[in-house]
Simulated assay, not measured.
Amino acid sequence: MKRPIPFSYPNRLFLLWFLCCLSGLAFAQPPRGPLVVSPQINDDKTVTFRYLAPAASAVKLSAQFEKAPVPMTKGEQGIWSVTVGPVKPDIYPYSFQVDGVTVMDPANVAFFPNERFKASLVDVPGDKPLIHAMRDVAHGAVTYEYYPSVSGTTGSVVVYTPPGYDKNTSQKYPVYYLISGTTDTEETFFKVGKTNLILDNLIADGKAKPMIIVMPYGNIAARIAEQKGGSKPADPTVRDGDDAIKRANDFGNDLIGNIIPYVDKNYRTIADRNNRAIGGFSRGGGQTLRAAFGHMDKFAWVCSYSSYLSPQEMDKNFPQIGSNPDNTNKQLKLLWVSVGSDDFLYKGTVEFMDYLKAKKVNYKSLITDGGHTWMNVKKYVAETTPLLFQ
């Protein structure tokens, strides 16, 4: 007959240690609060936003479709909520103000890529699919690429290749270099501008030619500082000041000397100016105009979204554009300028268009409602890409 093993003092210590470990593992797991659904898009195009903050004394919704922050109401389990709208179908950034502190929506995975605060995004669908909506069409691919850049740094770009790119391995494509604005990143035209879905839909409808779109990061100074262990420099205080122009030229040199050669080497591009376009929004639009006017041998298609160059800078740095309009008009297959009527850059952009008109430089323009927003940028991309490479 087997005798039971005595429960000795060391065994008791081991058991106590084991139970403590189990208890520690249990307490190491963060507590799960109530399920919060936010944003909730309702059938009537109203949108309900919710935020869990049991200890907060005040929570407000700040959204680009609202003129001022909207107070939210505290409900059961400390969930604050508000229903607003109906909201015009589009994609909008929003955030919450919790006791005066701005925060993202933790219940929402969609966010606005930015160097500073990253707002959340709400996509209100239309009754009919909007140009940026996901449709049942052939889709292109989006790839993140890294290339050797200036000062020994590594640059980053997001690249869209059209439907069929991987199958039609003998076909070459034109390229559109598309640059986002101040504080934006190389992801913004993709994640907020939905450029890939816009092109998928336009190509499926036969309205745009299949093309490669390259979306670079425009803040060279910030990237150098980040990778060299320095502090990110503040943005230039004057849009057409010496510092802003130098930074734009630094980006242009990186684009011409590094990005374009990398793309031409690694993708099936038609590597000539007639099959190369450049465009950009805000700061990216200024970089676009400076790079294009300074390298007319590289680009035949130029799109400026909510941006401009002053007549003084044009006469000083790019006198050939206005002094020989016949040659300029012969070289540029498209010069596009667009801006919103409420955009803070509206006055300067109209002045730029007046300058081109006075110099008899051909251009196409579009003035829309609204301000300096990505809602307008999507419109400009949808209007211009069907014109490229035709």
Score class of each variant (00 low, 15 high):
Ala56Gln: 09
Leu356Ser: 05
Pro30Lys: 12
Val157Met: 12
Tyr165Gln: 10
Asp123His: 13
Leu25Asn: 12
His139Gly: 03
Asn324Pro: 05
Asp243Val: 15
Met72Asn: 00
Asn258Trp: 00
Gln390Val: 12
Asp354Ile: 01
Tyr217Met: 07
Gly193Arg: 08
Asp326Gln: 15
Val381Thr: 05
Ala63Cys: 05
Pro31Arg: 13
Glu351Thr: 12
Met296Lys: 13
Pro148Tyr: 07
Ala55Arg: 13
Lys172Asn: 14
Lys167Asp: 14
Ala138Leu: 13
Tyr144Val: 15
Met72Glu: 08
Lys207Leu: 13
Gln40Thr: 12
Lys2Gly: 02
Lys316Ala: 14
Leu332Glu: 05
Gly193Ser: 10
Arg223Ser: 07
Lys60Ser: 10
Asn249Pro: 01
Lys360Ile: 05
Trp374Ile: 03
Tyr176Leu: 15
Gly126Pro: 07
Leu22Ser: 13
Val381Arg: 04
Ser231Thr: 15
Phe49Asp: 08
Val381His: 05
Leu130Val: 08
Tyr9Val: 12
Asn168Met: 12
Pro236Ala: 09
Val124Asp: 00
Ser23Arg: 12
Ala68Gly: 00
Trp80Ala: 01
Leu309Gln: 11
Thr183His: 05
Leu332Ser: 04
Lys194Leu: 12
Pro210Phe: 03
Gly348Lys: 03
Cys20Asp: 12
Tyr165Ala: 06
Asn327Ser: 15
Tyr363Ser: 07
Glu226Gln: 14
Phe14His: 10
Pro93Gly: 04
Asp272Ala: 01
Glu115Ser: 10
Gly285Met: 03
Gly100Lys: 04
Ala222Met: 02
Ser341Asp: 14
Pro30Leu: 05
Ala291Gly: 00
Leu35Met: 13
Val158Gly: 01
Tyr144Lys: 15
His372Trp: 07
Asp166Tyr: 04
Asn317Leu: 13
Lys209Cys: 06
Ile259Leu: 00
Leu15Glu: 08
Ser180Ala: 15
Thr188Trp: 07
Thr153Met: 06
Cys303Glu: 14
Ala68Ile: 00
Gly140Trp: 00
Val337Ile: 15
Tyr380Asn: 10
Ile260Gly: 02
Tyr92Asp: 08
Pro319Val: 03
Val337Gln: 06
Ser81Gln: 14
Met211Lys: 05
Asn253Pro: 00
Gly155Ser: 10
Phe49Gln: 08
Asp264Thr: 03
Pro39Trp: 03
Pro210Trp: 06
Tyr305Ala: 07
Asp205Pro: 02
Gly252Phe: 00
